[in-house]
């Protein structure tokens, strides 16, 4: 499997990941290498195998519906890059 620089750019955009233009080729090469490695999976037949999402066959535990969190806005926003009037600020969102 071989990815082009263009493929890399598309994936990078999907992941909102800035990549320097001069590095795109090298990412393409590394990613292609990783996909070659991964392609070894196709050497084994898995038709009747159930996918395994977790190591243990456990069931989701459920939480009682009881408010147990207090307002910590001040603490949380102390580490935020840009806030005003209790809101997180981001460049204008256009709908």
């Amino acid at each position: 499997m071989s990815l082009t620089a263009d493929d890399v750019n598309k994936i990078a955009y999907l992941a909102r990941l800035g990549i320097d233009a001069e590095d795109t080729e090298s990412y393409a090469k590394d990613l292609s290498g990783m996909l070659d490695l991964v392609a070894q999976m196709s050497t084994v037949n898995t038709d009747n195998v159930a996918p395994m999402a977790h190591p243990l066959d456990q069931v989701q535990r459920l939480r009682i519906d009881q408010v147990n969190e207090e307002n910590q806005r001040k603490t949380f926003q102390a580490i935020a890059p840009q806030v005003e009037a209790g809101l997180y600020l981001v460049p204008k969102v256009i709908e």
Binding site: R63, V67, E69, R73, A85, G86
Partner: peptide
């Protein structure tokens, strides 16, 4: 009373980000 994945209140109309 609480969020689907956290124990914060779902009450409507609170000051911004005080129930997050």
């Amino acid at each position: 009373k609480t969020k689907i994945f956290s124990a914060a209140s779902t009450a409507y109309g609170a000051e911004p980000n005080t129930q997050a």
